[in-house]
Design a protein around this nucleic acid. Sequence first.
DNA 1: ACATAAGATCGGCAAATGCCGATGTAATCT
DNA 2: AGATTACATCGGCATTTGCCGATCTTATGT
Lengths: 117, 117
Amino acid sequence: MAVELELAPKSKRPIGEPCCEPLAMPSVDSERAARLAALAKALGDKTRLQLVDVLRRHAGEVCVCELQPLFDISQSTLSEHLKKLRDAGIVGVERRGLWAYYYVIPEALEELKTWLT
Amino acid sequence: MAVELELAPKSKRPIGEPCCEPLAMPSVDSERAARLAALAKALGDKTRLQLVDVLRRHAGEVCVCELQPLFDISQSTLSEHLKKLRDAGIVGVERRGLWAYYYVIPEALEELKTWLT
DNA sequence: ACATAAGATCGGCAAATGCCGATGTAATCT
DNA sequence: AGATTACATCGGCATTTGCCGATCTTATGT
């Protein structure tokens, strides 16, 4: 993973001890960090996290109207949560007739999981 | 985290009847969902995610003043980001003299990782 | 064609977030 | 003691967020 942030040595400090050793400091590159943060952000809401949890185990089987009674929020709010998850690439939708069936995209969760490992 | 959900089989239904049966789903692990969401939320910022990434590789070796030049934000903003990570239980601090050495608490990341698996 | 239903989007509002400079606190140096 | 340093916290500001009811779009049934 490309090093984008570099460590600069401290210029001032009490004479005795150095604050810290200068370290070549690898970090996730900016683009990847932004992507990972976006994934985490999308999961950073209790309702959305529960949505993902439910969808993960019932992908393609549950329509939105079935999801609705599980949460104490309005239909529009639920729809907006699902949109955020969609925008983050965490879920996808399949429309069948009047209904919308959401499913988790496992690769998205895998991305985060990989970084966490 | 198991949100216990019973799925009602989907069937075509006449107009005028609800799309699906309401599903009896007590927000069983509501507490755990909140915890996981809080973890994800804390990671849901590019700067904080990069902070965690750096700290993970250099736990206890890097003081805040050394972290600072890595990010294009003010000292106070950096400090506030670290506080959020602290509050989420993702990092801890050890103070040595004037300096503060942050380290990642691996169990916190593990929590999220486990759920993602 | 018309009515109905699922779901997305809009407008608006209160609360939370990220950011900064200024100030506070505590440890260390002269 | 006073000065300096590292870091935390405060006050304020602009943006984003979550939420809602209302409305729009699209598909289906009569």
